[in-house]
Write a protein that binds this DNA or RNA. Structure first.
Lengths: 217, 217
DNA sequence: AAACAAACAGTCAAGCCTGTCTGTAAATGG
DNA sequence: CCATTTACAGACAGGCTTGACTGTTTGTTT
């Protein structure tokens, strides 16, 4: 009689899929996209080949699910990091370093692998493109909010975009070796320049809340 | 005696290797790194498998040679594009667009594939890292020269680096679809900001030659 | 011109990867 | 408590890739 439902099926499925997706992301970072074979994933996840194929019938299904999983991780990572930002005077530099760190983290590396692979894999592209676009838009929105940028000012929007493309480029540079020191120097300088550019003719800048900086030496 | 050297061996070797390397680079762009199999390369190059293995005994040898080949192409491409730059007043924007175009071109795409693959392939990394570093330094030098930047001024060097990392990021964004319009807008704004930042306190700026801009509205 | 070396051609085996297939255990529903 | 469905296990075949290997042609050297 005791032998009724020990572990409900929903729970089992969730755990199994989670383990597989985590292993997939880990392997993307460790071995790259082409090195992430389904056999390796099942081994790494401690899941039998049969079970894996049950939950994800094809490699594409697995990878697409991994893309979605990764997108969620990236989103929550960013929000968490944003919430932990100090409110002090060096707000801009803190925001930039937070972004720079994110785009140099393993999650970005995994995303980069998928990104590059998707370029020559139509099926993957179909899954990656919309999600990446979403992440891009959200990151933009978040950055605008964190920096208190008035996007109605001409050029402001482009400067935010440039900032994000810059950290993407820095993230790319970071994949071939630790680039932290260089990144810090560059972002510190960019923070000064960006502030100057955005404060140039403040018009109705809502950032009245934010303390204005006349930092320049 | 007339039947001496019809086609000298050196010539044949050079032509054969060139065909193989070109095919390799083409396939990197078309199919990505993992899609670039040695069989495909030999087919594409119109070279027998035996001949291929004669010139490049292993895939690694082929790819490493392709990296070097690509590095040369990138170098000469950049120099050629630099030489073709107009001398007019919008020098900065022209330089930035030239860089942006280069980092959005097929050669960059091929380099990106190698770059990403090298991250998880020690043998490849050994070949890619030093060459990429060289290209990076040369690009930096070229940019400094084209923009007439005085690197002795604090922050100037970092702004140039930021510019290059930005175009790298823009190049990355361009791989998932044509991004030309957005890139132009961003670079136009970046040019304004960069000029303002570099001209801020001109000290002994040698760019006395370059016309000064008080563009800001 | 003869011997030698380099260039070129194509076949073959070993290994890996993916996805199919058959079989077993566990859980839910009546 | 039995039937049905879902979860899990592992063997297997087909395809592709790499590099080794044998044989043929072409250029070089003396």
């Amino acid at each position: 009689m005791s032998a009724t439902a020990r572990v409900p099926q929903g729970e089992r499925t969730r755990a199994m899929r989670a383990r597989l997706l985590e292993a997939t992301v880990d392997l993307l970072v460790e071995k790259g996209f082409s090195g992430t074979s389904t056999t390796l994933v099942s081994e790494r996840a401690g899941v039998s080949r049969g079970a894996q194929l049950h939950h994800f019938p094809t490699k594409n299904a697995l990878v697409v699910a991994a893309v979605e999983h990764l997108t969620e991780i990236r989103g929550s990572d960013l929000e968490r990091a944003a919430a932990a930002l100090p409110d002090g005077e060096d707000r801009t530099v803190a925001v930039l370093e937070m972004l720079g760190d994110h785009f140099s983290s393993p999650v970005f590396t995994a995303a980069l692998e998928l990104w590059v692979a998707a370029r020559t894999d139509p099926a993957l592209l179909e899954a990656v493109a919309p999600l990446e676009q979403r992440v891009g838009r959200e990151t933009h929105r978040l950055t605008v909010e964190l920096l208190g940028v008035d996007e109605s000012r001409p050029g402001a929007r482009e400067l935010v975009q440039a900032t994000l493309d810059l950290v993407r480029g820095l993230g790319l540079a970071n994949t071939l070796g630790d680039d932290t020191r260089r990144r810090r120097r560059i972002l510190a300088q960019w923070a000064v320049t960006l502030d100057a550019a955005l404060d140039a003719a403040p018009a109705t800048k809502k950032a009245a809340a934010t303390k204005k900086k006349e930092t320049t030496s």
